[in-house]
């Protein structure tokens, strides 16, 4: 088990995030002063209706987008003022991504796709961790296949392994099961949960799915660019009820 739990600082600490798209009359306020703290070793789910700003929030937290105002600290480093190269290097070290579309490189084998973040950063994988990870995601016998020879679920497993392989400070996943059938979704969610439990991997997951949110240690509810509610671990039923009462459909 990883010892990240003992860290004092929050791995992600965002304050007063405002994000405005466009100007003047047509301006869209995607985020209107959002503050988030993500503690290590937790699986956090972000829920909310379409257009509520979930993806925007996640992109800003992950250093892919910059807020109009506000601050984001990753592992204590203020990222909103970093230059592109510095930010890119920070992402290498601290952040892992799981996308809705798997975004694998078609010419690379599953193994090479998984190792890609390490290859790019020019670091060597820890073979023990790699083997363990591959076992965990159940791809041991598929490593030499190319994405076109893998099923959707398998491709998403590769994407998850790719996000985990560099042991980032935090993994962001935007609707990781949005593109999969319900059975495969269940497997993928279990996998993400176990990566939090077994590796202590801090994870933030945007989802529409109450079943997915029910696996999280904490659920944030976003509506119209603001966090309207926050709960601890809840079951599917409780979550659906909250959505209902807050009218977050």
């Amino acid at each position: 088990m990883e010892g990240t739990v003992t860290q004092v600082v929050e791995v992600v600490d965002a304050k007063d995030l405002v994000r405005v798209y466009g100007e003047g009359d047509t301006a869209v306020h995607a985020l209107r002063g959002v503050g988030v703290r993500i503690e290590p070793g937790q699986l956090t789910a972000v829920m909310g209706p379409s257009g509520s700003g979930k993806s925007t929030l996640m992109h800003i937290l992950a250093g892919l987008d910059r807020p109009t105002s506000g601050s984001v600290k990753i592992d204590g480093i203020e990222i909103t003022t970093l230059g592109d190269d510095a930010l890119t290097k920070l992402r290498r070290q601290h952040i892992g991504f799981i996308f809705q579309f798997f975004n694998l490189l078609p010419m690379l084998t599953a193994r090479d796709n998984i190792l890609l973040p390490l290859t790019i950063a020019g670091t060597k994988p820890d073979p023990e961790f790699f083997d363990n990870l591959v076992d965990r995601v159940g791809l041991a016998d598929r490593l030499e296949h190319r994405p076109s020879e893998l099923s959707g679920g398998q491709q998403q497993r590769v994407a998850i392994a790719r996000a985990l392989v560099s042991r980032p400070t935090v993994v962001f996943a935007d609707e990781p099961t949005g593109n999969l059938d319900s059975r495969t979704s269940g497997e993928i969610l279990k996998l993400m949960r176990s990566s939090v439990d077994e590796y202590g991997q801090t994870t933030v997951m945007v989802t529409h799915d109450a079943k997915a949110a029910a696996m999280a240690d904490r659920v944030l509810y976003l509506a119209d660019g603001e966090i309207v509610k926050e709960t601890g671990r809840s079951n599917q039923h409780e979550i659906l009820q909250i959505i209902d009462t807050l009218d977050l459909q």
């Binding site: 892919l64 592109d84 890119t88 290097k89 992402r91 991504f97 579309f101 975004n103 890609l116 973040p117």
Partner: peptide, 16 residues
């Protein structure tokens, strides 16, 4: 395009 976005997200710099 999307592939390039992914590569940039997981740490490829502009120079790279």
């Amino acid at each position: 395009t999307r592939e390039l976005g992914m590569l940039r997200a997981i740490g490829l710099t502009r120079g790279q």
